[in-house]
């Protein structure tokens, strides 16, 4: 019974370079940072490659690093029982990253979650809508600067953000 092995950043970068040229932006001990424009290509390669076989997307997380957003893909292979981490960065002012729904169906809900809470727009996602909060909720609450968002919102228990009544027009009939 062996524990899951981790494919380090250097090894992963080597593999990716062999399959998709000029895709790696940065390599760290545990992860590689991929250029956004090559992301889907890299992910498709990782999924279909026999040696890496990253057919299983464990988790997709977004982190706000103030200057940029980091989208973290935890991938693993159930056949080889190893895992790897790929990251991609998105600009802070107009965050946008390519969607990997075409590669893994499991990314669908997680990308919607990141869009909802962090505001990263995934281009190519079939249904880029908020998932937990309602349409018209001001801002994206998981951002570190949510407290100082434009529009004078001050979240917290004192005052709950009001929704925009225009957003609900047509949603309910009656009255």
């Amino acid at each position: 019974m062996a524990a899951t092995t981790r494919i380090g950043g250097a090894q992963l970068a080597e593999h990716i370079e062999a399959g998709v040229a000029d895709a790696i932006e940065e390599t760290a001990e545990d992860w590689v940072l991929v250029r956004p424009e090559r992301l889907v290509e890299v992910m498709t390669f990782l999924r279909d490659d026999r040696e890496l076989d990253a057919r299983y997307l464990n988790a997709l997380s977004g982190v706000d690093h103030f200057d940029y957003f980091e989208i973290v893909y935890h991938l693993s292979s159930l056949s080889h029982n190893h895992e790897m981490t790929v990251k991609v960065r998105a600009d802070h002012d107009e965050p946008e990253a390519p969607s990997v729904v075409s590669v893994w169906h499991g990314a669908h809900l997680q990308e919607r979650e990141i869009y909802d809470l962090l505001g990263v727009n995934f281009s190519g996602h079939p249904n880029m809508k908020r998932i937990f909060l309602w349409e018209g909720f001001p801002g994206h609450p998981l951002r570190k600067d949510y407290m100082a968002m434009p529009g004078g919102q001050s979240p917290g228990l004192r005052r709950f953000p009001k929704e925009d009544p225009e957003q609900w027009a047509g949603e309910f009939r009656g009255d």
């Binding site: 026999r50 076989d53 057919r55 159930l78 056949s79 029982n81």
Partner: peptide
Amino acid sequence: SEIEVPLP
């Protein structure tokens, strides 16, 4: 008794 996932 052991995990066993084949390649595609």
